[in-house]
């Protein structure tokens, strides 16, 4: 464990806390893409298949349970909670995310470390996580005005993988045979998707103005 990875995990946790706060405090999920949240459930279930077979540390197991539990809770809330599901902007959340699932799975069948069930699903979860934010970013562009909590949620979500890139650079230089090219390349693509969002987020923060994404 290094400071970059710990900062990344904490930033990821903060993004989930901000989203849960928004939904529970405002009883609203307006501006949130249900498709992105569903993709994250698939990402965590596919990545943490070893949850009960490989024990790495208490921290690792607890965080996996938190990520799986919170992503399921958010999807449940947006689909079943009477007050919240009414605020879901279904007509704005139109990204065909099934293609992202299919494409990531096909890519995992082609590009993986070992052709085993667990490695294929791990690579699948890495590729899917890289594109999972797309429905949310498209929805933000469509909805134009972004409320503060939603903007902060996306910001922390983008920042977490940027910390992980620093973690991979650090491990590359400190651990002799550290090789994680699948996660590195995918993490770079993932963080690149946030580039324009980070730009507009910074502009809005500098001008102390509301976050406006160009349609």
């Amino acid at each position: 464990m290094n400071i970059f990875r710990f900062a990344g995990d904490m930033t990821h946790l903060i993004s989930i806390v901000v989203l849960l706060l928004k939904i529970y405090a405002t009883k609203s999920c307006s501006g949130i893409s249900l498709k992105t949240q569903e993709l994250y459930v698939i990402v965590f279930l596919a990545r943490y298949l070893d949850l009960f077979t490989d024990f790495i540390s208490v921290y690792n197991t607890v965080m996996k349970l938190v990520f799986i539990g919170s992503s399921l809770a958010i999807v449940w809330c947006m689909r079943m909670h009477r007050a919240v599901k009414r605020t879901y902007d279904k007509e704005l959340d139109t990204f065909r995310h099934y293609f992202l699932v299919l494409g990531s799975f096909v890519l995992a069948l082609l590009l993986h470390e070992k052709f085993t069930f667990q490695e294929i699903f791990w690579a699948f979860s890495i590729y899917l996580e890289a594109v999972a934010i797309l429905p949310q970013l498209v929805m933000l562009q469509r909805s134009g005005n972004v409320d503060n909590l939603t903007g902060q949620y996306v910001f922390f979500l983008g920042a977490y993988r940027a910390f992980y890139i620093l973690n991979w650079i650090y491990r590359f230089f400190t651990e002799p045979h550290f090789s994680r090219w699948i996660a590195c390349l995918s993490g770079l693509v993932q963080t690149a998707f946030y580039a324009d969002f980070f730009y507009y987020y910074f502009i809005s923060w500098k001008n102390n103005a509301k976050l406006q994404l160009p349609a």
Binding site: R5, D9, E175, S179, A183
Partner: peptide, 10 residues
């Protein structure tokens, strides 16, 4: 093995 140690990340 290599792949074992990289799977310690979330």
């Amino acid at each position: 093995s290599i792949s074992a140690d990289v799977k310690d990340e979330l």
